[in-house]
Design a binder for these strands. Sequence first.
DNA 1: TTGTACGCGTTATCAC
DNA 2: GTGATAACGCGTACAA
Lengths: 342, 342
Amino acid sequence: MASSPPTIRDVAKRAQVGVATVSRVLNNSPNVTPATRALVMKAIEELGFRPNAVARQLTRKTRLHNIGVITQLFLSYRSFAHRLRGVQLALSDYADKYELVLYTVSSLDHYAERLAYIANHRLIEGLVIVDLDLDEGQKQMLHNSGIPFVGINHFRDRDWPCIGADNREGARVATQYLIDLGHRDIGYLGDTFESSYEFITGRERFESFWQTLHANEIPIQMGFTRFGEHDYDEALELSRDLLSQPKRPTAIFAMSDMQALACIAAAREMGLHVPEDLSVIGYDDLEIAYHTGLTTVRQHLEMNGTIALKTLIDRIHGEEHTPETLPPPEVIARQTTRRLDP
Amino acid sequence: MASSPPTIRDVAKRAQVGVATVSRVLNNSPNVTPATRALVMKAIEELGFRPNAVARQLTRKTRLHNIGVITQLFLSYRSFAHRLRGVQLALSDYADKYELVLYTVSSLDHYAERLAYIANHRLIEGLVIVDLDLDEGQKQMLHNSGIPFVGINHFRDRDWPCIGADNREGARVATQYLIDLGHRDIGYLGDTFESSYEFITGRERFESFWQTLHANEIPIQMGFTRFGEHDYDEALELSRDLLSQPKRPTAIFAMSDMQALACIAAAREMGLHVPEDLSVIGYDDLEIAYHTGLTTVRQHLEMNGTIALKTLIDRIHGEEHTPETLPPPEVIARQTTRRLDP
DNA sequence: TTGTACGCGTTATCAC
DNA sequence: GTGATAACGCGTACAA
C-alpha cells in the first residue's frame, strides 16, 4: 500500500504537537523551543516528510511564472545554444519575474507526449518551440490550453508565430557569393531531408542552392552533392568522399558551420589548402566561425531568440503587436573563401 | 486599487453561473451547453482571468519535481554548455519525472538574491550550482531550506559536495606534456585571478603550471605569461602582445580551449606556423577542440554534469552513497603541439 | 510557547 | 446541464 506522501499533519501527529508547530519548524521561526524542534525534526526524518511546494505557494499567494523552452535533446544542433542564449538575455530584462524551464525531447513521440503534458498541467505561462513543428492537433491542443506559444525556426506560411531567418534567402546569398567569386564547380554538403525533425531547413537550403545555380545558368553536378546526418564525423566522411573524386569542386557550400569545418578538415587531410585550393562557406555564424575564420552566413541566432521571447511575453500580456523582424541572412566573408584563379 | 487577480469565483459571479461550470469550461468538458460556455468565456475575457496553476496542481495532487541549475549568465564560459548537456543526459534517464529550471545570474549580488529566493520558495527539489561558490551563510541557508545541492566545479576541501576535475593535476599533465616534448620556453595564457566568479580555477591552474616548471628545474619567465578576462578577443590581444616579443616562447599553455584558439589565430596572423613554430595546448576538450585539431586537456565535462546530477538525485532520495568519481584530467594530443626541434 | 480553525483557488462528487 | 460543497496541504491569525 504505497499511500500518499506524508503531510505536516502526519508529522504533527507523530511528534505529538500541532500542525502550526511543525510549520514553524519548517520555516525556522524562532518561537519554538529546541526540545520540540528536535521532536519535530525526528518525526520528519522518520516519515521522510518533504513539504509540498504547491500547497506552500497557494497560501503564499505567489503565482508561478514559468516560461518553457522545448527543443531536441540539448545541443544536437549547435545553433541551439546561441538561440537559447538570446532567450536568456531577453528574459533577464524582466528582472527574474519569469523562470526558464527547459524541456528536451528525444523523438517525435516524446515530443508529442511532452506537449500533451504541458497543455494538461499548464505549469508554464508561455512556450518557446525551438526547431520543432506543430501539427494541426498539437496546435489546437496548445490553443485550448490557453498557453501562448511562439516558434524559433524557419517555418514560413504557418498560422502560428514563428520567428526565424529565411533559409532560401540565406542559401541564395551564400551560393551567389561563391558564383561572384568566379566559382562554377560548386559542391553542396548538408543534411538528408528525411533524417531530422527539422527536415524543412535542409530541404529549403538545398533547393535554393539549386535554384541559384540555375538562375546563373550553371549546370548542376549531382556528383558534387553529399547528404548525411547532422554530425561532424559523418560530414567528415562525406567530405573525404566528395573531395577524393578525380574532378573536384572548387568551392563548397555547407549547410552548417559544423559541416563546413568538417569539410575543411577533410580537405587539409588530403593536402588541399583552404581557400587556395578550395573555398568553403558555412551557415549559422556560430561563435566558432569567428574563432576559426570561417566564411559563413549570419542568421542572427541570438537575436532570433531575443525577438522570439519578447514576442511571447507580449502575447502573454495579450498584446498582439507586430513583432520585431529579424534582419535578412548575410554573408560574413572571412578566410575560407576566395576568388577563383582564372 | 490593484487588487488580487480574479479567481474562477469572480468569473462565476459575473457570468451568473456556478464555479463548477467555469471549471468545466476551462477544462473543456463536453457537459456544458454552447450558450453558457459563451457566457463564461465572455466573463473570462472581460476580467482578464488566467487560471492559477498552483491551485490546480494542489487539487490534482501532483507534486512539483523540479531540479534547478544555477550558473552565470549563460555560456560566458563555453564549458558550461558541455556540462549542462551532461546534466540533461542524466536527467533523461529519469523519464521526465523532473523538470529542469535554469537560473542565470549576472553578478555576485544577483547570485545571492537568487539563492535566497530559491531557499525561500522551495520550488525545486534539488539544486546544481555550476562554477559558483557558496559562502558559509549561503550554505546554511540552503541547508535550512532542506534543498539538497551539489556543485559542478573544481573546488576542493569544501564541506559540501562538489564534483569536478582537479585543476592542479590537469595543469600539471599539460605542462609536463610540453616539457616532455622538449620545450623549455613555455608561455601561459589565462584568466586574471580577480576578474571572474570562478577565480579559483585560474589560480589553481597557473600555480600548478608554475610548480611543474619548478619541479623540472625550468626557470619561470614572467615575460611569457599573460592574464586577462575570459574572452576570445582579449586573449587575441594578449597573444599578439606575447608573441611579438623579440624572444618568444616555443610553446604555450592556455587555460581554456577558447584562449588557445585565440592564441593560434594570433600566431597565424604573424605568419607563425602551429605547431612548427609554436606548440599550443588548451584546456577543456570542448567539441570545438576536436573540430579544430587542438591538443588539450580533457576534463570530462559532460560526464561531470552527469555524475553531479546523479549525486544530487541520490541525495534527494536520502542516499548518501559515495558518488562516482570523475577520471583524472588527461592530455588529448592532436595537431597543435609537437616535439621541439633540437 | 503551542494548538485550533480558517483561507488560498481549483477540481471532484454529489444532488438537483 | 448545472450548482453547492468538500477536499487538496500548508500558513497564519487568533485563542489558549
